[in-house]
Write a protein that binds this DNA or RNA. Structure first.
Lengths: 274, 274
DNA sequence: CTAATAGTGTCTATTAGACAGTATGTT
DNA sequence: AACATACTGTCTAATAGACACTATTAG
């Protein structure tokens, strides 16, 4: 039983901080972007892809598997600060969009020891990356197939391609909250596959009622490109007139146009919020 | 620099888990419910209130201030397990609705030492609480006033009443993400006022597109009562026909009615998802 | 009878979905 | 010319907002 002290000062001076067992914390960064997949027909537009940045592990545990960039937090560092530090180490980016996703605390999620990890989702415009990525880092295009029971995610980075399958387990009816169980995964370390699906769903949700998508766009874009990004994240086709109706309040038409395709040039727009 | 090992087994056997500094983690529970405020006019219905459970601190730091129920997590316990344990200690409830809210990691959020805390929001039907609360615990009705720059939250539990004021600081334009700065608060310990406003906003958001509200309702309720709960959480009046149109797919009409008010009796409904 | 809530009908305004049509570049 | 995309007009369907009206109880 703790002894009681009269004043808070006195209490703090006598406080023994070793009475509760301690643990380590890490930050995992789920960095999303969109990339262009070239088409071989001169008339056709590049296809937009949704991609995630992963790093190949050099050491045990999970040696040679892919994982999200991350690292331990220091004692004089908040989770947000650690996230920013790691982001700066992996990319040359500062002050980009990040949001806290989820804190994962499974006892044996890391075979080394008890580590609790908080994930952050970051959205970047890949074209703003000026430095080349480290050798171990790579952007993977993600294709999501979803049905009632599971997700099947295909990752590919030109050199390699793999599929992971995640089962959906309904844990809560009123909000349709799911738990995710990894059914097939030979390539992604730790519980990071779960973090990826949580992030995709968060993004899918927020893209519908916020302007979050503009964090992944360049300064100028055509409405066709923007629509493709929406489509690839939502996983469905949208009707042109409906899309333009909704988006027109969020963007500003510029004088510039994008030419070069074997078809009518497209007007370039800017995000209004900038 | 870590030595490299051939196999993962060998690596783990030689792993020194003391190389990173460790910290303590706690779980804070934001337990919301609705209560009835009696009216003195026999004709008038009880008014629904939105309320939160808080506990008076017996010890330093923040002695005699109110805080959210919470506690340290054990080394063999996930955050969710710790949350359930604490919930069972505070109330007699098990398996109720909980969701992870936010992980707060400010360096000096606890004057004793570095503590990172993950908050969970729980929704309960107060009438299912059979045991009486411990002496130090109390339900506070919350009234939220919001304008462009700030929130003003009034807490009252019949015996005492206080106001806290929280400034909104827009930190991110695309998703209108705010940071919260406590302007006036003499009664709530730690950063728990911030956690409360985060929880209220999460609930306000989810009530619009999920069935989350039914976690706070009893088994039978009138549509008038249900509408009042929506109104008190959303902070605005709703039109009867519109509300009934939207809610009618989510509920089942029963044979029971609620009589006794000086007006037409009201049909009792059940949640369809049960 | 009256105050208070319960519950419904219907008109209008707004938004979303569908589809057809026109416009204009490059090769 | 032909293809691919850009962009618009308009009809219809679905949804949301507003308001007025009727119904029913305890005192």
């Amino acid at each position: 039983m703790e002894k009681t002290y009269e004043t808070e000062k006195e209490f703090l001076e006598n406080y023994d901080s070793t009475i509760y067992e301690k643990l380590s914390m890490t930050v995992d960064l789920l960095i999303f972007s969109v990339s262009n997949k070239k088409t071989n027909n001169y008339r056709k537009l590049d296809r937009k892809c949704f991609s995630v940045l992963m790093v190949k592990r050099k050491d045990h545990p999970f040696k040679n598997k892919w994982c999200l960039p991350g690292g331990f937090i220091g004692v004089k560092e908040t989770l947000e600060e650690a996230g920013e530090r790691i982001l700066a180490e992996e990319t040359n980016l500062h002050k980009i969009y990040t949001e806290q996703l989820y804190t994962n605390s499974e006892i044996n999620r890391d075979p080394r020891m008890r580590i609790v990890s908080t994930s952050y989702m970051a959205l970047v415009d890949k074209d703003k990356l000026t430095d080349t990525l480290s050798l171990e880092a790579s952007w993977f295009n993600i294709t999501v197939l979803e049905d009632e029971e599971k997700y099947s995610l295909t990752f590919d980075n030109e050199k390699e391609s793999f599929v992971i399958i995640i089962e959906k387990i309904l844990t809560e009816k009123t909000t349709e909250k799911y738990d995710y169980k990894i059914i097939k995964n030979e390539h992604i370390a730790f519980d990071h596959a779960k973090t990826i699906i949580i992030g995709i769903n968060r993004l899918k949700n927020k893209i519908e009622y916020t302007d979050i998508v503009f964090n992944m766009m360049g300064s100028y874009f055509t409405l066709g490109e923007l629509q493709q990004v929406y489509e690839v994240i939502l996983g469905k086709k949208l009707l042109d007139p409906a899309f333009r109706r909704i988006i027109k309040d969020k963007v500003i038409k510029t004088e510039k146009v994008k030419t070069g395709g074997g078809h009518r040039p497209s007007v370039l727009y800017k995000y209004k919020g900038e």
